Amino acid sequence: MKNFLISIKLTLVLIVLCAFLFPILIAMISKLAPGGGKGETVMAHGRVVGYARIGQKFTEDKFFWGRPSAVDYNASGSAGSNKGPTNPDYLKTVQGRIDSFLVHNPGIKKEEIPSEMVTASGSGLDPDISPASAYVQVKRVATVRGIPADKVKQLVEAHIDRPLFGMLGPSKVNVLRLNVALDEIGSKK
């Protein structure tokens, strides 16, 4: 009976800590984050066009494309495909993405396509791509928009987020912010 009462007390203490105090603490900390815990929004022309930390689907040639999504960019159902690297369905999907990328980016060789441009992430909602993935798309975007490739490349370079302290994490480019900036220079032509 003594152990039973101790376990009941411990359970009640853990319920209060884990179900009430911890969520309140996290909610208070989130208020310090960009967006006040409601997500960091990206604005264009005075309206919200998306969230900085949730990938969006860009398929038009005039935009930079993000990493493919196994959940079709559905933020309510974040997930990967759960198919292994030797799964025939997965390999067929990746080959289809490679073929599509090559059609939309003439002059690019298969070996030049960064793997992240044809493989989905674990979350399916990656908002960022590597600088290499952005650079490989510069020619297509510049050609479609009628903007000099050097100017588009400079825009990519201006949107590279460098690693924290120069060493913690990879360099990355936020696709939504890059496309919003691209639309802004496109409208100034």
Rank of each mutant, 00 (worst) to 15 (best):
E40H: 00
P85N: 10
R140P: 03
S81K: 05
N82K: 13
G66E: 11
F101Y: 06
D128Y: 15
K31F: 06
A120D: 15
R97E: 11
N74C: 07
T59C: 05
P127D: 01
S130H: 03
G37Y: 08
P88Q: 03
L102F: 08
D99V: 06
I26G: 00
A79N: 13
H45W: 10
D126T: 12
S78Y: 00
S69D: 08
N105P: 03
S115I: 14
K109L: 04
D89E: 14
H45F: 09
P85I: 09
R97I: 11
Y73I: 03
T119M: 02
E111F: 12
A132T: 01
G39H: 01
R140C: 05
S121G: 15
G124R: 08
E111I: 14
R53S: 13
Y90E: 14
D61H: 08
V48F: 06
G96E: 14
S123M: 05
S76C: 07
I29A: 14
Y51N: 14
Q95A: 10
K139Y: 03
I29S: 10
E112D: 15
G96Q: 13
S30V: 01
G66S: 12
D126L: 02
P127I: 03
N87I: 06
S133F: 09
Y135D: 11
P34C: 04
V71I: 13
A70K: 04
G124H: 05
T86I: 06
G80H: 08
Y135N: 13
E40M: 11
L25N: 10
L17N: 09
A79V: 02
S130M: 06
G36Q: 02
L17S: 05
Q56K: 13
Q95N: 10
I15F: 11
G122Q: 12
G77N: 12
G50T: 09
I54Y: 02
V94Q: 02
A70R: 06
P131Y: 06
D61Y: 01
A75Y: 14
M28A: 12
C18I: 13
T119Y: 03
T41Q: 15
V49K: 04
G66T: 10
